[in-house]
Design a protein around this nucleic acid. Structure first.
Length: 214
DNA sequence: GCCAACGTTGGC
DNA sequence: GCCAACGTTGGC
């Protein structure tokens, strides 16, 4: 669940009331990183200084889940600037992804859970850097977290902007049947993460399955 | 509505 | 730190 949804984001926000949640949550564990072996191949010393503007890493790919009854892709398309705060995520692993790994311009598969059919329905993009989820500080809000403080926010979010609806929904059932998608976190058993990484090859395959090859 | 698979909480 | 109880997610 992310979003409790409120229409567009923009970092300062008014408290509305809203909310509930939708999907999300998690499970698959992020996989671990490789640990440096003792005799690692040598590598060239890194060049440390970066002189120019920002480093601009290659765009990454993600998947977010939402129950359409809570916040659908249509709702995102209809939001001002087709953008919303992806608020309401209350899972640490998903929080870390939002806060630490997403960057403006990253592409996102928009997935409908608890729907008919369940599957990927559209593409969105990360439209802001991470900032504290304002709903955690709203008294009485479903996503209020009394243990969090503005000086040390526990929950973070990014803005998401709709890019385009897919020509056809890519049903979960088809994704499960695709050998090419076999490693996707979404398809791992017990997966509940509402915000999760997607490999570039899996992202491309989902688009291909939707009839919208990149 | 069912229920498996998780995550969180809190007693000890 | 263990672990039972409880709450949530989300496919079916």
């Amino acid at each position: 669940m992310p979003p409790s949804k409120k229409p567009v984001p923009r970092p300062a926000q008014r408290p509305d009331s809203n909310s509930s949640s939708k999907s999300k949550r998690s499970s698959s564990a992020p996989k671990a990183s490789k640990r440096p072996s003792k005799h690692a191949p040598k590598r060239a010393p890194e060049v440390a200084s970066q002189v120019g503007p920002k480093p601009a890493r290659a765009p990454r790919f993600w998947l977010v889940k939402s129950e359409p009854s809570e916040f659908s892709f249509d709702a995102l398309l209809a939001a001002p600037k087709r953008t919303t705060m992806w608020d309401g995520v209350r899972n640490y692993q998903a929080r870390n992804t939002l806060r630490d790994d997403m960057a403006v311009g990253d592409e996102v598969l928009f997935y409908h859970s608890n729907s008919e059919p369940v599957g990927v329905v559209g593409i969105a993009r990360v439209a802001s850097a991470a900032y504290p989820d304002p709903t955690q500080f709203e008294s009485g809000h479903a996503h209020e977290d009394p243990a969090s403080s503005p000086s040390d926010p526990r929950w973070w979010l990014v803005d998401l902007q709709a890019v385009r609806r897919l020509p056809r929904v890519v049903p979960l059932e088809e994704m499960k049947a695709s050998p090419a998608l076999a490693g996707m976190p979404l398809l791992q058993r017990g997966s509940r993460l509402s915000v999760q990484p997607v490999g570039a090859e899996h992202f491309a395959e989902v688009l291909r399955m939707a009839g919208a090859p990149a």
